[in-house]
Computed example of a mutant assay.
Amino acid sequence: MRVKVYTDGGSRGNPGVAGSGSVVYGPGGETLAEIAYVVGQKSSNNVAEYTGLIRGLEAAAELGATEVEVYMDSKLVIEQMAGRWKIKHPDMKKLALEARDLAARFSTVTYTWVPRAKNKKADELSNVAMDAAAKGAAPGIVGEAEQNAQKDASAEKDHVVAGPAHWSGHDAPRTRFVLLRHGQTAQSVEKRYSGTSDPELTDTGREQARRAAAAVAAMGPIDVVVSSPLARARETARACAEVLGGVDVAVEEGFREVDFGAFEGLTRAEASERFAEEFGAWEASTSVAPPHGESLTQLHRRVTRARLALQEKHAGKTILVVTHMAPIKSVIRQALGVGGEVFRHVFLDLASVSVVEFYGDFGVVRCVNDVSHHR
């Protein structure tokens, strides 16, 4: 009998309270087993993910399966179990050996990565297990009655808690913009103005992009991915698209970085020394452009047009926009409905995530400069 095993695991705190979820589907797509498993009070995400795999394989064996297709949204576990990535951590080696011993019971086992959006049931079960762990439950399978009670409580909570649309009195569909700044480049290392120039990511920048991509995928389904036309943003967007399941990346000219004109490639000190009068005027007013460049007011108008076009085309969807510091500040400014002071008083780290929502013309800022995925 061929079965499909979907599995997931998570840790709140990494390490922290941890749980895993596993679902076994039969040849006709029917659900044969669901397991929510408390992993521990101080376990990592990877330990929880491996535990979910082991519980799923155990269930498949108990059901008499001979062929197993494993689906997970953990790139690490999938690549390690497929033998393409090395396993260095001792805890992971022990768990991987246990999983391989279980896999040897079947005639064939395949491992396939899927985006989190296609692994919702296992994710739900892992959260049930983490909820139980948070209440002090010992490691082990969460009972069916307790699982149902926690699912009901979660559903009731989701039903009664009102969101921004309720409190603001707006009933237009929510269009969510997940705004991701690109990773590190050589110019960002040297703190040089980088607008129209087109440097690629450094090795550090590529790692930042991979971490940010995983964080974005963990936020939930992404319907559309849009990128600035500049290489550093497109490369970061490609990393996200890969983790999200190979989705297409649309390039949007309106989200390119501000044109720094004569200041391009200079540090702040160099620009203020070479263009003292012009630099002072530029810093004093968002409506003043650098010589041969673009003012922040001009950028704001450009980004506003681009955001409105995306919102009209993808109303009610979640849109990932991979872009630069100034365009992200512009979208935050649009949601807040404030003046140009945002450009001076908000800072965005490399590969940081911000989230802004629009309900028609009403904007809400949900998150600014989240970099927890880099810690």
Score class of each variant (00 low, 15 high):
L308K: 13
G29L: 03
H314T: 02
S126V: 06
V249C: 07
E207W: 13
A33V: 14
A59R: 02
E144N: 04
E190H: 12
D123M: 03
P199K: 05
E242T: 11
D198W: 00
R192N: 04
A217L: 03
Q334A: 12
E146Y: 01
A104C: 07
A284Q: 13
L244R: 05
G19T: 02
R100T: 15
Y359P: 07
V258M: 12
E312H: 09
F358N: 06
V288N: 09
G183V: 10
T185D: 13
A241K: 06
A326V: 03
S126H: 06
I332A: 08
A214W: 08
G261K: 04
H300Q: 14
P221E: 13
P327Y: 00
V226C: 07
P327T: 03
D223L: 08
S194I: 09
R301V: 10
G28S: 06
T108R: 15
V109Q: 01
T196Y: 13
Y6W: 09
M130T: 07
L53S: 00
H314I: 01
I78H: 03
A162Q: 15
F343S: 08
M1I: 11
A335I: 08
V216E: 03
R210D: 12
G10Y: 03
D131W: 02
A165W: 10
S74L: 07
E357K: 04
I35D: 00
T202N: 02
V24S: 03
S44R: 11
Y37K: 08
Y6M: 11
G360P: 04
K121T: 12
V178Y: 00
K93F: 07
V160N: 11
I35V: 15
A36I: 00
R12W: 09
G163F: 05
L102I: 02
G16M: 07
W282N: 08
K120I: 09
L76K: 00
A281M: 08
R344A: 13
M92A: 12
L57E: 02
S330W: 05
S287T: 15
T31Y: 09
G254S: 10
L320M: 11
L57D: 00
G143N: 09
P199W: 05
P229W: 01
W282E: 11
R210I: 00
V77H: 02
F358Y: 08
D73A: 10
V47M: 12
A186N: 11
L230G: 00
A217N: 13
L53M: 15
Q184R: 14
A104S: 15
Y37G: 04
M325N: 15
S352F: 08
F279G: 09
V331L: 10
V303K: 04
E252K: 11
L310T: 00
S22D: 02
E264C: 11
D361S: 14
M219P: 04
R234Q: 13
L76P: 05
P115M: 10
A315H: 06
G56I: 01
A306N: 02
D198I: 01
A237N: 05
K4D: 13
P327K: 03
Y193T: 08
A104Q: 11
D259C: 14
G265D: 03
V178M: 00
V5E: 00
W113L: 10
G136E: 11
G29Q: 01
A165T: 06
T286A: 14
K4F: 09
R192P: 03
L180H: 01
R366P: 00
R344Q: 15
G316M: 13
D8C: 08
R84D: 13
T66E: 14
T66P: 09
W282Y: 15
G140A: 11
V160F: 14
I332D: 00
D198M: 04
A326R: 12
A276S: 14
A132M: 06
